[in-house]
């Protein structure tokens, strides 16, 4: 026999929800529209929420962190990796962020919502830059010129432009011409194999 949770008085629901984590409440909110509204009416959870530009959604309170982790693999969607982490569709991460804010009723003055996202833009002079949008204590819009030292992710590989790649290298022109005729840029592994990494090509 089920327990009619949604028939609890709101005070009691608040007590139950206080003992649930954001992942559990997310699943509950998906049961029905009424369930979603009920989660919101259960009272403020005093959580903080943060959206890091398409990378992940983080919810935390005190020392407890919960991660909604975007993935490209459909078979992993909504899988719980640990008690604190769940995979979500990468394409839906943005919608998910606002869904969670709404569902958890995190739009009060005292609630902490932080959003950091960036889009790639180009200036008229050809400068490539990122438009960084932050919605936090103080909203700001910042035009950031790409700085690899600052902006690279740890596991991201920098593919240099042609000018940068060959600037200080001495190569045999004929061998190099073969590469130039192809549209595809060689990746780093290929570069290593073909002696672009400081090795003298055979003459």
């Amino acid at each position: 026999m089920p327990i009619a949770l949604l028939k609890f008085p709101y005070d009691l629901l608040g007590e139950v929800f206080k003992q649930c984590n954001p992942l559990e409440l997310y699943f509950l909110s998906k049961c029905s529209k009424k369930a979603q509204k009920t989660v919101k009416l259960g009272g403020s959870m005093n959580w903080k929420i943060c959206y890091w530009g398409r990378e992940q959604i983080l919810i935390w309170r005190d020392d407890l962190n919960y991660i909604f982790d975007p993935t490209d693999k459909p078979e992993d969607y909504f899988k719980i990796e640990s008690c604190e982490s769940m995979k979500i569709p990468k394409e839906g991460a943005f919608d998910m962020f606002f869904y969670l804010i709404e569902t958890f009723g995190m739009l009060g003055e005292d609630d902490y919502i932080f959003m950091c996202d960036a889009v790639k833009v180009y200036k008229d002079d050809g400068t490539e830059a990122w438009l960084d949008v932050e919605l936090g204590d103080v909203s700001k819009l910042e035009f950031l010129v790409w700085d690899p030292d600052r902006d690279m992710w740890e596991d991201e590989e920098l593919v240099p432009s042609d000018d940068e790649r060959y600037e200080d290298e001495e190569f045999d022109d004929e061998e190099f011409d073969d590469e130039e005729t192809e549209d595809e840029e060689p990746d780093e592994e290929e570069s290593d194999e073909e002696g672009f990494d400081g090795e003298e090509p055979e003459s």
Partner: peptide, 21 residues
Amino acid sequence: MRELFGIPEPWEQPSTSTATW
């Protein structure tokens, strides 16, 4: 959870974030 808490109404799936639910 629907079964445990006796929630009969099925969720309408409106957005991409729930498309595969």
